[in-house]
Structures are given as structure tokens and as C-alpha cells.
Amino acid sequence: MPNPSKRKHNANEQAKYQRIASAHVPKPPLARNLVTAFAVGGIICAVGQGVLNYFVSSGMTFDEAIAPTLCVMIALSALLTATSIYHHIGEFAGAGAAIPITGFANTIVAAAMDFKREGYILGMGAKMFIIAGPVIVYGVVSGVIVSAIRWLSR
């Protein structure tokens, strides 16, 4: 008769192993990651600010300049993604490259490029938002919740 407890390692054994294993896992270089994320994220934002300033200086109001600024940053990110540069920035800067809108644009373009091979309908069209989708869904959901709170507490 097979002894069921012998067949699958129990939780105690697993926990003991995970303690042994985690001692071998190198710690992520937290300080380096923080510095590169801060620097690269800052540079991306500075570029965005420069674009915004340009639109304002050429006669737009601040509110008018926001949309075209985002368009320029998204286009720039799409270009850098298509030319295989943005993922290197992401590898180097982590959240510094992921959090700004350029990172968001990268997730959509990267998925579109990848799934194009499965066709424009079932591939690219269906799977373009495979990474960005959750951000949009929960962005809208949290927007509704926050607006509801604001409306109720008027």
C-alpha cells in the first residue's frame, strides 16, 4: 500500500526546504534599483515637461497642452518599443520606465507586435491589451469608486 503522506511532501518539509533555498537566493540590488528608477523616471518626466512647455510657449493654454503632450510621449514610446530600445530601458530602470505613460504605451505596442503573428483579428486585435487591460479596467473601476465617494460626500 502506498503511503499517501510519503507521496507528496508535506507542508513542514516544504517550509523547511524553502528556508534552505531562500538562503541561496541573492538579494535584489535595492539601492541601485531605486536610484536608476528615480533617475530614468525623472528623465522621462523631464522630457514630458519639455514637450509641454513647448506647446505652452507656442500659444496653447496649460489645459490644452496636456493632450498633445501625452500623444507625443506615447508616440515616442511606441517608436522606441518598435525599434527594440524601450525594453532595454525597462530592464535598466524597472518601475522608472514602467510607471510613466511611456511604459503604458510600451505594454500595448509590445503585445501588438508579439501577437501580430497570430493575425490582425485573433492575434493583435484580441491580445493587444493583455498587459494594459487590467490597468484600464481597474483604473476605470477605481475612478468610479472615487467619484462616487466624492458625489456622496458633497
Binding site: K27, N33, S84, H87, G90, G94, N106, V109, I131
Partner: peptide, 17 residues
């Protein structure tokens, strides 16, 4: 990569392992 993880051009930082 595309079967098990993410699109190739996605900006993502490798973990230490």
C-alpha cells in the same frame, strides 16, 4: 518567452533569480 512569460519588447526588469 511569449508562451510562458511576456511579450518580447515589454519593459520588464529581470529578477535576481
Amino acid at each position: 518567452e511569449r508562451q510562458f512569460r511576456y511579450p518580447i519588447e515589454l519593459n520588464i526588469q529581470r529578477k535576481s533569480t
